[in-house]
């Protein structure tokens, strides 16, 4: 089952922004009536997709096998190519211009679903290593946000209205008022480390990309407002 065009166009924007060759997303074990069928978004050529399906490669694809077992990012360069079948697989992928280097982020969801989010690049090996380090955090954020959007578009209907815990709302509101993490920590009687923890948790909750984006969305959704702060959150650290 292929996902919404609106969602998959976001994938193309991300690839363009980072100068990447291809992107591929697949979610399995979804809690929907159609859950038996994977949810897909791929930019590989139609020829490669057809060849992949006809050759039954999903059963031997080492990225799929490794990605469904663990949750660490997988650099394709680490895959053992000792087996001639695996070598043939990567060789053919190259012929179909999948991309010389690849990085796959495994995703584990709270509904018991699994997903894999892959990007590929035709950069030289040294440029690829540098790029990988630079983009890893953005890629993790993007892949999870993409997964959330894809699930939503497929409609497993799990997500009710977003609820922001008070501490997160409070940190966001002070951010909106221009306070630094240290200021907010002092105001709320918590450490700046904990302020950043709440900001990151809120960011993930709202599927945004950074704190400014999170503040803007929280305001737009009416989850925070500028005029009200529960008094008890302003008290100093409880002892």
């Amino acid at each position: 089952m292929h996902i919404d065009e609106a969602v998959s166009s976001v994938l193309e924007d991300f690839l363009r922004e980072w100068g990447l060759s291809n992107g591929a997303y697949a979610a399995l074990n979804l809690p929907t009536p159609a859950g038996a069928r994977p949810l897909l978004a791929v930019t590989y050529s139609a020829e490669w997709q057809k060849h992949y399906a006809q050759s039954g490669y999903v059963d031997l694809d080492p990225i799929v096998r490794s990605g469904l077992g663990g949750f660490l990012p997988i650099d394709w360069a680490e895959i053992d190519r000792g087996d001639p079948i695996i070598r043939k697989f990567f060789g053919e992928a190259q012929e179909f211009d999948v991309g010389a280097n690849g990085l796959t982020i495994p995703i584990r969801g709270r509904l018991g679903e699994f997903a894999l989010f892959t990007i590929t690049s035709n950069e030289t090996d040294s440029a690829w290593r540098a790029l990988k380090r630079e983009l890893l955090r953005d890629l993790m954020i993007f892949s999870f946000n993409f997964h959330a959007a894809a699930l939503h578009s497929a409609g497993p209907g799990d997500e009710a209205a977003v609820h922001l815990p008070l501490r997160e709302a409070s940190c966001l509101r002070w951010k909106a008022l221009g306070k630094t993490d240290d200021d907010i920590g002092r105001i709320l009687g918590i450490s700046p480390h904990t302020v950043r923890f709440h900001l990151e948790s809120a960011r993930a909750r709202l599927s945004t990309t950074n704190t400014t984006h999170t503040v803007a969305r929280a305001l737009a959704l009416g989850l925070i407002n500028m005029s009200y702060e529960p008094n008890y959150l302003l008290t100093k650290k409880r002892r």
């Binding site: 993790m140 892949s143 008070l166 501490r167 997160e168 923890f197 709440h198 990151e200 948790s201 993930a204």
Partner: peptide
């Protein structure tokens, strides 16, 4: 133990 009972779930945590 969750603040406000809301799950903490982030790819960066």
């Amino acid at each position: 133990l969750l603040p406000d009972g809301a799950r903490i779930q982030s790819p960066l945590i």
